[in-house]
Amino acid sequence: MPDRARLSLLARRFAICVVLVIALAPVVWLFSIAYKPTSDIFASPPTLLFSPTWDNFSSVFRYFNLGRLLESSLIIAIGSTALSLLIGVPAGYALARSTSPRAIWLAYFFLIIRTVPPIATLIPFYLLMRDIGLLGTWWAVIILNTALNSAFVVWMMFAFFRAAPASIEEAAMTDGCTDFGAFIQVALPTVVPGLIASAIFCVMFSWNDFLYAMFLTKADTKTISVALLSAYGTKDISWGTLGALAHFSTLPIVVMMIALNRYFVQGLTQGVH
């Protein structure tokens, strides 16, 4: 490699490293304050070095029913993801394989549903849940999350199925396979990355949501995001406790994304192009 090209590559890598530091430093800081004693967190000027402590984790266990919070978040995330995939994937397939000119408009319809501001659905939905007695239950959050998540799944799977060739399914059907069999046995296995990507996004949206959960759950059904917000602002809870709590609220999603990065990236790019 000529020297100039090598130099330009080095400069580029250095620039990327700078970008990475900016992107990651606040996240690293968030997790590091969990190990900081409260006196160090509020030190002015701020200190970089500190003697690590587990105090913040013990106050998380003292102030929060962590098991119950995680249970709520998990049930809502998994319930909504399962339902969204169950109804969203077949619809995405149907729209991708349909020859009707209306199919593409339906796909756009689902895309737009995803972009609707939460407040437009939240208030009437809140009143509806109150009237039918589901307010304060996991179901209320799961039902509403599923509406938006399934719309997203339809759009994303529409893109994935369109990119997969229909000819194999047609061949299978010519050989006597039923329509449903062709969908389940032939088409689905070709879009496994799409299924994984859809599931990742559903889990992420549901887990990270706090506006819906804040208004639709009550004390014993609230999610970890809601607990995080209510924790903030009470005087017993320090930033350190929040950092410790973030180990349970934020770290799982970050780790999931890094582990399944390939699908995450593929899903994002497929959904747009």
Binding site: A91, A94, S98, T99, V116, P124, L128, T146, F180
Partner: peptide, 28 residues
């Protein structure tokens, strides 16, 4: 028949989204 089959696959999501997302929006 094929169109009917595809319609049946798309119907649950469409009905669900109309009922849970569009319905409240219209109500709002």
């Amino acid at each position: 028949k094929r169109q009917l089959f595809l319609g049946a696959l798309a119907a649950p999501a469409l009905v669900y989204v109309l009922a849970v997302a569009v319905g409240p929006m219209v109500q709002g």
